[in-house]
């Protein structure tokens, strides 16, 4: 018992640092699912796209800033594609996401040229930003906390602006939104773009933090992110904008500590996805089994 606790305890800082990166994915999942009412599965592809693009660009000699920025732009475009496929071709939102994510798997392989790339030989963002200091765990955590807080605050502010409010209206009531002069297509496209840009940013930061990129890094990330969003919403609620925005961030931190605890307690890493899936199933399914409606997943077709 003591050993389990020690194992977990020693990993808390590392897990915390990584959970801050994954918090961006959770936010990138929250935006389509909760704000736009558009169940977007693109993250399984846009997260590794961000990583692959960033890795390939770094290896090609780009500096970490432009590599990260371009990776984010690539993921933005991926999100726009999913929205366009749904809007233009009238393909169901879930299927549109699956199509893009599947196609991105090939794209990511093409981008990197092989299934994984080591980045130890090149400069990375973490070293660049933290000028004059080594990238020890403590300074990395400070950096990530700043990144996450800044992005969270920007999102909170954005959803209170005229444009952000219009985006929320598109998710809340399409018919009302267009009657109020809101271009629902444009907002859906840009909204999905922003969400996937966050996924891409997470991918780009992660490969730089861990020093390698792997084409399979997105596997299961959607359910992880969804689990994080649900945990955050359970802790904070979602009835005010700040709660909805903060939920994926807090949820991610808690979720990855729980996973770490599970691992320390002897859960096989290969069983984690099963456990997470069951957790998501229970939280989404419980209200239905109790005779209610699936409030958590009331989505656009």
């Amino acid at each position: 018992m003591m050993e389990v606790f020690n194992n977990f305890y020693n990993l808390v800082p590392v897990t915390f640092a990584q959970s801050l990166i994954y918090a961006l994915v959770a936010a990138g999942i929250m935006i389509p699912f909760r704000i736009l009412n558009f169940p977007d599965l693109t993250s399984e592809g846009s997260f590794p796209l961000g990583g692959s693009l960033c890795a390939a660009l770094l290896m090609a000699g780009f500096n970490p800033y432009s590599a990260t920025l371009l990776a984010v732009c690539g993921a933005f475009v991926a999100g726009c594609c999913t929205a366009l496929i749904h809007l233009k071709l009238k393909i169901n939102t879930l299927l549109a996401g699956i199509l893009v994510m599947t196609m991105l798997f090939s794209v990511n392989l093409r981008v990197m040229g092989k299934s994984n790339v080591a980045l130890f030989s090149v400069d990375n963002l973490l070293e660049k930003v933290w000028v004059g200091s080594s990238t020890d765990l403590a300074s990395m955590i400070i950096m990530f906390v700043i990144m996450v807080v800044v992005i969270g605050l920007i999102l909170f502010w954005f959803f209170k602006t005229e444009i952000g409010m219009s985006m929320r209206a598109v998710g809340a009531n399409l018919k009302m939104a267009s009657a109020q002069g809101i271009n629902t297509w444009a907002y859906t496209i840009v909204g999905l773009g922003i969400a996937n840009a966050l996924n891409g940013l997470a991918g780009a930061v992660l490969v730089q933090q861990q020093g390698y990129a792997d084409v399979n890094m997105g596997l299961g990330i959607l359910i992880d992110g969804l689990a994080a969003v649900i945990i955050g919403e359970t802790l904070l609620g979602r009835h005010e904008v700040w709660r909805q925005v903060a939920a994926p961030f807090l949820g991610s931190v808690v979720y990855y500590q729980l996973i770490s605890l599970g691992l320390a307690a002897g859960l096989e890493p290969s069983d984690i996805k099963l456990a997470t899936g069951i957790f998501v199933l229970i939280t989404l399914g419980l209200p239905v089994l109790r005779g209610g409606t699936a409030e958590t997943l009331k989505l656009r077709e």
């Binding site: 502010w157 954005f158 209170k160 602006t161 005229e162 444009i163 952000g164 409010m165 219009s166 109020q180 002069g181 809101i182």
Partner: peptide, 11 residues
Amino acid sequence: LRGQSHSLSLG
């Protein structure tokens, strides 16, 4: 705001 352009100022 109907019929006007929307901005990034607070709603």
